[in-house]
Amino acid sequence: MLQVEDLDAGYGESLAVHAVSLHVDGGEAVAVIGSNGAGKTTLLRAICGLLRPRAGTVTFNSESLVGEPAHRIARRGVAYVPAERHLFPAMSVQENLELGAYPLRADRRQLELVFELFPRLRDLLSQQAGTMSGGEQQMLAVGRALMSRPGLLMLDEPTTGLAPILAEEAYASLGVLRGEGTTVLVAEQQVPLALDLADRAYVIEDGRIQMEGPAGDLQGNPDVRRAYMGIA
């Protein structure tokens, strides 16, 4: 579904991502794990068009995404939930969700699916997004992304700013989505949560992929455990 080959990307003079190759197949959940500053965000931004890749190819459903502006990549079915969420703070939950479906026009059924996943959003429908708690904003950000019925849901650190229990809840809802067959690519430094969710994972350090494999294998890998899971 998504195929990234030898991608270079970065801001200014330096490259934050070097020759990264990865792929995500339909229905798969894939995690990109690594510490802060490893290049995860740059990688996702280069895929969704918010940052133009310096080199390499990105293909989605066998169409090239390189050089396409972000709004067109979104219309092609790649939904991106940034760590800072980028909600519309002075708009209601309902308006935020409806804008998520902007190219398709809002769809009642899709709205119901989002409410099934996040019943809390139904109660907050007329609340302004900027006045909600971090956990609620995270739900809304994922809900807004789902409104476009994306082929691929990409999330950057969905646990940012969330208390541990809310982080677990966020991953529980991603687990539900995965169970329903949504294709997910998540970048995360809370490695245990991400590896529990994912089928496969890539370990990224200094902008390069260091390791890749089934999530279960990486969970048992002593290097990964030491570096990211706080286990000696």
Binding site: R75, Y80, P82, R85, F88
Partner: peptide, 8 residues
């Protein structure tokens, strides 16, 4: 940026 991500 949020608008771009919504396809606008």
């Amino acid at each position: 940026e949020g608008a771009q991500l919504c396809g606008i």
